[in-house]
Write a protein that binds this DNA or RNA. Sequence first.
DNA 1: TCTGGGGTCCTAGGACCC
DNA 2: TCTGGGGTCCTAGGACCC
Length: 395
Amino acid sequence: VTVSFEEPIIHLDMDAFFVEVERLTRRELLGRPVAVGGTGPRSVVASASYEARRAGVHSAMPMAQARRLCPTLVIVPPDHGRYGEYSRRVFRVLESFTPMVEAVSVDEAFLDVSGLRLHFSNPVEVAEAIRGEIRSAVDLPASAGVGPNKLIAKLASREAKPDGVAAVRAGDVEAFLRSLPVRRLWGVGEATHASLERLGVRTIGDLADVPRNVLARTVGASLGAQLFDLARGIDDRTVAPAGGAKSHSVEQTYPTDISDPATLETELLRHSEELSFRLRRAGQAGRTVMIKVRFSDFATVARSRTLDSPTDVARDIFASARRLLAQVPTAGRRVRLLGVGVSSLTDHGAPRQLSVDRSPAWDEVSDAVGRIRDRFGVEAVGPARLARGPEDKVD
DNA sequence: TCTGGGGTCCTAGGACCC
DNA sequence: TCTGGGGTCCTAGGACCC
């Protein structure tokens, strides 16, 4: 397909990113069905190789199920630190082409290449050049979709996989969309899909036949208006570098449920420490503290509380979290997940007001702890309560 | 097949203020 | 006495994304 700079949006998507990063150093994984993910009883697949996908394995699938579907599956525990490094290398390549790069996740980005019209004859050439550079400089496969807007570029990159390029001309948008399953659309998840199915909508073409008011009644005003446009290939979203995070959180699903209240509190403290570390690293502090509790029956509750001033201090986060936990009836119930989060973030440079009942010394302690952790990691220093006992010592 | 972790955005009700 | 309308903030829950 020949495109022009009338179709200047590229969606760049790494192929089976985590798996391919692992294969760089573990050549024995080449050509085999591989899944990156935890090995615990409640783990899910984070990334699956194309060989594994052929057996029906996909991301977010319980690992136990993946094993059953594909008995020869090789399971590799995730190393997010390394994926982060490779992600940064990929983004450096993207930014060497244009500053108009918007990260969607560690392994995905939109680019507006309008500014490259003097250097390339069309955006497909740009996409091929980018893929080639990622291949030679980072040694990883990537796919790219090219189109007149984000929606079409994203749908095209899916068609391009693995290791290819697909482009859709503005004039061909309607024909391209018509037969695609409606589930592909951004914003149509499991619940919306079920609602649309009840209307008899299966494809994006079907969706385009639904009147605006029926759509709004079925899925709500906001999503309804959005889907009305997307079904017609209309998408005004611009490519804009993402701003800072709006919330941070730490959560964990435990291999076996927790019933003991003291253990719950200890876990809350651990999460608060980790959260404080990440806030400091991001140079942010938050005013709203949130906890999340998931019980053995998967029922999930959240409680939040907004403070007078933002904090990144573990002790303060923990104090709030603990009070919130006390509001949730946990007696006699088994907890499978516990989470702590912070939102209403402000940048660290912003003036921080000290609360009346806290001495400035705590800020200094917190800063010192943070500096130690920056050098030696989260585990290096912390509350006595989280210290490992002698039985855990390795040396 | 018993369902991760880290995020974003939307909805809806109530409090509170003018 | 039984009563408006709008704006903003807070809380809870849910859908969705990768």
